[in-house]
């Protein structure tokens, strides 16, 4: 078990290192000199050169990569070129919006998808199954920003239940914050839930054909109990895999959704940083997102072992 854990962790760290090389390289080749950008178009060549020297932009590529990585590893993300504050402060300020949003969306999609999958699988081939899966099909097809606009129209403009956008900050009370995040979370979660429900259903249906399900039925357990007690846990591995993969899409989704709802989150920060060529912020945010995806996937790998005892003894 320890060996499995260490191996997963090592693979995660290697992936992160590889991603850092890619992020660094991509931002190296995109046009735009950070020093020139900071000083403006009217600055003299000498001044730009001096700043380049000061920022270490003239050092060899490898040296710069290593320095950047070392700083990054110790939590020093550098200073933003446009905001002129430490990137870490910017990120921290935005994370308190984006992290709750992502977690809320993940929780919502799980809470919707797994019962829907169970419901459909238990009624396989009947009307309830077809209807649920039809609905899921629609959910898969709807882009989340369009769903977001629809939600704004219905719940904010028409019913006036929630604010149409913006974020009051956690300082104004927990519920005010949740209320502001609820609609964006739903917009993010529904398309994800639709995919997850389909995966849950097909994984369950496959498991329901297994011999041990028949053994459980032969014990006298009713169908429902067999579904929950025996089928669900065995169907969980593909479901967890998809959840891990979806997390990356969830993060990508926040970039769009945060813009639709004017949420001061990481996604919006990233979007603004790209348009303003604030490369230091872009680098840091992308690395953070990559790290988050990798951490989630390591957690998924570990949860496999929690679900399936056969993986615990394997080397």
């Amino acid at each position: 078990m320890t060996a499995y854990l260490l191996k997963r962790l090592a693979i995660g760290i290697l992936t992160l290192l590889f991603a850092s090389v890619v992020v660094f390289a991509v931002l190296e080749v995109v046009p735009g000199d950070p020093a020139r950008l900071m000083l403006g178009m009217n600055a003299t060549e000498d001044a730009v050169q001096a700043l380049r020297e000061q920022m270490g932009l003239n050092l060899p590529l490898v040296t710069r990569y290593v320095t950047w990585l070392a700083a990054f590893a110790t939590g020093d993300f550098g200073r933003s070129l446009t905001y002129s504050v430490p990137v870490i402060d910017l990120v921290a300020e935005r994370l308190v919006v984006s992290l709750p949003l992502a977690l809320l969306a993940l929780a919502l999609s799980t809470v919707i998808a797994i019962p829907a999958g169970l419901f459909a699988a238990a009624r396989r081939g009947r009307f309830a199954d077809t209807a649920t899966m039809g609905l899921a099909q629609v959910g898969v097809a709807i882009p989340n920003f369009w769903l977001a606009l629809l939600l704004v129209y219905v719940f904010a403009v028409w019913l006036r239940l929630v604010p149409a956008g913006g974020f009051p900050g956690w300082g104004n009370g927990f519920w005010a914050g949740i209320k502001a995040l609820l609609m964006p979370a739903v917009a993010l979660a529904l398309p994800q839930a639709a995919i997850l429900a389909r995966v849950t259903r097909s994984a369950l249906i496959e498991v329901l054909g297994e011999d041990y399900i028949r053994t459980a039925r032969a014990k006298g357990l009713p169908r429902r109990r067999v579904l929950w007690r025996h089928a669900l846990r065995n169907a969980l591995i593909p479901v967890l895999t998809i959840m891990g993969l979806q997390f990356a899409f969830l993060l990508a989704g926040t970039i769009i959704i945060e813009n639709v709802f004017y949420l001061p989150g990481l996604g919006r920060l990233l979007f603004q940083a790209i348009t303003q060529r604030d490369l230091i912020v872009v680098e840091s945010v992308i690395m953070l997102l990559v790290a988050a995806v990798i951490v989630v996937n390591v957690l998924v790998d570990l949860s496999y072992a929690a679900v399936d005892p056969r993986l615990r003894t394997r080397r």
Binding site: E210, D211, Y212, T215, H230, R233, N234, P309
Partner: peptide, 8 residues
């Protein structure tokens, strides 16, 4: 080989 639930 398949009659028992592998996770219990």
């Amino acid at each position: 080989m398949t009659a028992l639930n592998p996770v219990k």
